[in-house]
């Protein structure tokens, strides 16, 4: 990421606002960590923003609204709130449909209590994660370490068949629980022998709606046939 790109695309200001794409954020952080001049510009911009916010709050002109009231009054915030609500409704509808499909389909019916917990490790160079197929009507709880802290996470379970990928399950609103792990509950019958990935993404609560979640990458595992 060169200086011209940073200037032309308002990278410094958008970074402070948390509005960079995941790729831009990574590239910019790597750039300023090793570049004292760029880091000083970032700090200057951060101080300027703080100063302007203080100045705005101090303003006694009744025509000028404070940050808080401006934020509440701005149409785009109302629009953002509507979009968030819409997304939440859409997610709920999707999960409801997914759940019905699972209950009505061939893969998971009459799910019985019980299940198993499978920690998925993401150690580079380590042994690949392997899970035995279980043709039972219970649950498999996949435990994942998100490594990077976010307020909430989403997970998509994908089955890989060569270059083909098929999404099997999507879960939103995950939060770390036991020892900071994320628990993704999957009907065991979905996990037939083959190659799978759980693709995680994360986002902070105060991120603007238009900012995409950070892609945290896939965690691969293989389901083997029961001996």
């Amino acid at each position: 990421m060169d200086r011209q790109y940073i200037r032309d695309n308002q990278i410094v200001e958008r970074y402070l606002q948390g509005r960079l794409t995941a790729d831009e954020e990574t590239a910019f952080e790597e750039a300023y960590i090793g570049d004292p001049d760029l880091f000083q510009e970032l700090k200057t911009a951060d101080s300027l923003r703080r100063g302007l916010e203080l100045h705005e709050a101090d303003s006694s002109d009744p025509q000028r609204t404070s940050s808080t009231s401006r934020g509440a009054a701005a149409p785009r915030y109302a629009l953002a709130a509507s979009l968030v609500a819409g997304v939440a409704l859409a997610s709920s509808a999707y999960l409801f449909t997914e759940n019905r499909a699972l209950r009505g389909g061939a893969v998971a019916m009459d799910v019985a209590p019980g299940g198993r917990v499978v920690p998925l490790l993401t150690v580079r160079g380590g042994a690949p994660n392997q899970v035995e197929a279980a043709a039972t009507n219970d649950w498999t709880v996949l435990l994942l370490d998100p490594f990077v802290p976010y307020d909430r996470y989403s997970a998509v379970l994908v089955r890989r068949d060569g270059s083909e990928a098929a999404g099997l399950l999507s879960v939103d609103g995950l939060t770390p629980s036991y020892e900071g792990q994320l628990a993704v509950v999957v009907p065991s019958r979905l996990l037939t022998p083959g190659s799978y990935e759980v693709v995680l993404s994360g986002r902070m609560r105060d991120w603007p709606e238009q900012r995409a979640s950070d892609d945290l990458g896939p965690t691969a595992f293989t389901v083997t046939a029961t001996p």
Partner: peptide, 29 residues
């Protein structure tokens, strides 16, 4: 210190339009 610096900066900006640019970038995002 920040208030002082911002007051001085805003006073020195040549046109209201330039002040508007800062407000739109840093406050209205």
């Amino acid at each position: 210190q920040l208030r002082h610096a911002v007051r001085e900066l805003l006073a020195e900006l040549s046109t209201p339009r330039d002040r508007d640019i800062l407000t739109r970038v840093y406050l209205l995002e």
